[in-house]
Write a protein that binds this DNA or RNA. Structure first.
Lengths: 226, 226
DNA sequence: CGATTTCTTGAAGCGGTTCAAAGTTGGTGG
DNA sequence: CCACCAACTTTGAACCGCTTCAAGAAATCG
């Protein structure tokens, strides 16, 4: 029900269980045995239907998890960020396409490696099951948004959920994705997304700084214009 | 990507691996060690947010997996049928409500029991992970329906998917749920669902027998009325 | 600096909702 | 067996929110 499906963020390096060669959490496992890699803006990290040869954990940047219909429409299921996992060791093929929104840094493991760890280390196996089912719950929340919220509230629900993982020091959150991306995520056109930003601003439900930085709640710095 | 997330249906009882006390599949495990139980029409099997004390496998009947918003609206995520699992051993609480649409027969295991099996029997652990991730893919398919299909096609997509698990000898499929249930699943009102049945019938995309039995494709028995 | 991409805003049209009423089905009891 | 009732389904007409198409503004990049 909550959005904290990211595995723990701050992982204070070499102290603690990492000292031994046996990792106890997914974060440790990738830090210890993962191979670093990176992707440029708009590069495809994995394609729907292609075999899963690597399971990634994102370290920096954001990724679009999406699917294309035969007529070229795109449904974005999720924006994955630092700490998120991409791919499951038990599936043969990717069930979505993953694309780097901006520059992305990640680490990966081979499914075979992960498989072996899952048998040897029940805590990791459990963590992976929980990760999977939490992603699952996230999709269900998304379904509720699409069914029962109108565009304004849909955008606000997204902004509230996203704020929990992108916040900066001054309370503003940076959006890495375009209006089109948001539209493809929220089931509306980019024009409607833009209009919704306008109306949320006008109602004082958010404050904006340029097109890509927002803060929740009524504006505090600027005069509350009617 | 496909809809066969049901675990294998025909489970020819006591022959094969069942003879030993060690089950190799989820179906066997529930057959061997599950406790039978049943629910009357419209009874709640599990409530959102309540602790998961049993993990069910449905044997007969259909179940609504849904969530209620604070203003009483209902989103049905899935209609679970024979062979489907309800609940995950690794979560503390149900992330949806499960209600019997008609009479339901099931078997259940305690999460602790299942947990122990998962450690002892990697094949079952893998099967459970696959089950979870397949349900997951199902939610994603559902998201695509809601975002990009209009009502007619949305209903047809559902009817096609549902046909794979409810078929009867004469090619007709029986719908256990009401128009309201369908509407709450497909993100439309019950009136729109009814109108869509009408238009699919008129276009010859389905044939109906009463309000609750349908067959895909153009009608063969009746004259193809313009 | 111009060129390209992204974002914003406007006006017309359509699909689905809402509200209302009539038709259908199945179950219960006289 | 039929009358009645409740629940469900179908159909109609007016209305509203979002899309579509179009043009202009702002930001980004070589």
């Amino acid at each position: 029900m909550d959005t904290t499906l990211r595995t723990e963020r701050p992982q204070s390096a070499a102290t603690g269980p990492i000292a031994g060669s046996r990792a106890a959490t997914l974060a440790e496992l990738f830090a210890l045995r993962g191979t670093p890699c990176s992707f440029a803006r708009n590069k495809t990290i994995a394609s729907e239907e292609s075999p899963i040869e690597r399971v990634y954990r994102i370290e920096r940047g954001f990724v679009r998890c999406c699917s294309y219909t035969e007529d070229g429409l795109r449904q974005i299921f999720d924006f994955a960020g630092p700490g998120d996992l991409l791919g499951f060791p038990d599936l043969e093929t990717w069930h979505f396409t993953a694309e780097a929104i901006g520059p992305v840094a990640a680490r990966y493991l081979k499914p075979d490696t992960l498989d072996a760890v899952l048998i040897a280390e029940p805590r990791i196996a459990k963590a992976l099951r929980r990760h999977c089912v939490q992603q699952f719950a996230r999709r269900e929340r998304h379904l509720v948004w699409l069914s029962y919220l109108q565009s304004d509230d849909r955008l606000q629900a997204f902004l509230e959920a996203f704020a929990r993982l992108g916040e900066t020091q001054d309370g503003f959150v940076e959006l890495p994705m375009t209006r089109k991306d948001l539209g493809d995520h929220l089931g509306m056109t980019l024009e409607t997304v833009s209009r919704c930003f306008g109306s949320l601003k006008r109602c004082g439900r958010i404050a904006m700084e340029g097109a890509c930085r927002y803060r929740l709640g009524a504006e505090r710095s600027e005069a509350s214009a009617a």
